[in-house]
């Protein structure tokens, strides 16, 4: 075990997988430039030095080209880990992601596989509306894609390994405020997050949620940054004798419904906290699932605490207002337990 930041844990997963399998290559902007950054959040630092620029491939600012070249390489049996600098830029490559990566296997009648990982930094971090969205939920309604969203360094390393070894296109969302990047690339307002991470090889299977805190009065489902806010809220409520169970789904597709339903049947209440917008969002999907499978167990209406349906504003004061805070989580839970 050693203590790593999220950025370090992701880097370690990439390094170990690249050492293990020569088919693993990295493709993205500013990822292997000598004297550069190692990607926008330092994740790929040092990898070009170890693996060379044949396997750490710097690209033009061409998101369509990046995802397309990764798809083609994946079809031929390489295992590309491509990246965009901000998940907002996934929209630039939307055709390649939604029409190509997600569908080529199906359209071919199962002739081909696309073992591709697409890493994408998500979440609002004081940059204004075009570098701030939380898009992981949106990609869950495109069959053919898997969607992963780790919240801790341990999960990030283990889930990235599984994603790289998976034979399908996986969108791997990393929250900017959880990276723990240092120096000039440090994020203001970031969570101080160091986690115990095994030095030996381990992988966390996709589709298995993790109960980050056990509780009995209410279930809270949250991911990425919202998971940490939910945990802080739970800790504070604990002082008043309110026992909150906090579930991190860790992967959105495939989704571990069972863990959520089981928890709801125990606590009889559920709050979903999500940085994605509310309307038509991921929280609604969780909510519907609970209604379908455990409605009779509910003692209170399901609540969704999501980012307001607005583009993310620039001012830190406004940004903080539109995204669920620890205080709002606490208040909502109190109301639900009324």
């Amino acid at each position: 075990m050693h203590k790593l930041t999220m950025a370090e844990a992701i880097r370690e997963a990439l390094r170990e997988e690249m050492r293990r399998d020569p088919n693993v290559i990295l493709i993205g902007e500013d990822i292997g430039i000598p004297g550069g950054w190692g990607g926008p959040f330092t994740v790929t630092q040092g990898l070009a030095e170890e693996f060379g620029n044949e396997r750490v491939i710097d690209t033009p600012i061409s998101e369509t080209g990046i995802v397309g070249i990764a798809i083609g390489a994946a079809i031929m049996g390489l295992r590309p880990v491509a990246e965009v600098q901000y998940c907002d830029f996934l929209f630039c490559a939307m055709d390649q992601i939604a029409n190509q990566a997600a569908k080529l296997r199906y359209m071919s009648g199962g002739q081909i596989k696309i073992p591709l990982v697409l890493r994408a930094p998500t979440g609002a971090t004081g940059r204004g509306a075009q570098h701030a969205q939380s898009l992981e939920g949106l990609f869950t309604s495109i069959p053919g894609l898997k969607v992963v969203a780790p919240s801790t360094p341990y999960d990030a390393k283990g889930l990235l390994k599984s994603s790289i070894r998976d034979d399908n296109p996986v969108l791997f969302f990393e929250h900017k405020l959880l990276y723990g990047s240092k120096g000039a690339r440090k994020e203001r307002g970031g969570v101080e997050l160091f986690g115990e991470v095994p030095e030996e090889d381990y992988a966390i299977p996709l589709g298995v949620a993790d109960i980050k805190k056990k509780g009995k009065d209410i279930t809270v489902v949250a991911k990425l940054l919202m998971l940490h806010r939910a945990l802080e809220a739970a800790e504070e409520l604990e002082k008043d004798g309110i026992s909150v169970e906090v579930i991190d789904p860790r992967t959105l597709i495939p989704l571990d419904k069972e863990t959520i339903i089981k928890s709801v049947k125990k606590t009889n209440r559920i709050l979903i906290v999500d940085e994605c917008p509310k309307t038509g969002g991921w929280a609604a999907e969780i909510s519907s699932t609970v209604v379908e499978e455990a409605m009779d167990y509910l003692d209170a209406p399901i609540k969704r605490l999501c980012t307001y349906d607005v583009p993310i504003p620039f001012s830190p004061v406004l940004e903080n207002y539109v995204i669920p805070t620890k205080e709002r989580i606490i208040q909502t839970i109190r109301e639900m337990l009324g």
Binding site: V67, G68, I69, A70, G72, A73, M76, L78
Partner: peptide, 11 residues
């Protein structure tokens, strides 16, 4: 066309 590039990259 971008996908053809990827096939070529693998080659």
């Amino acid at each position: 066309i971008p996908i053809a590039n990827g096939v070529a990259l693998a080659f």
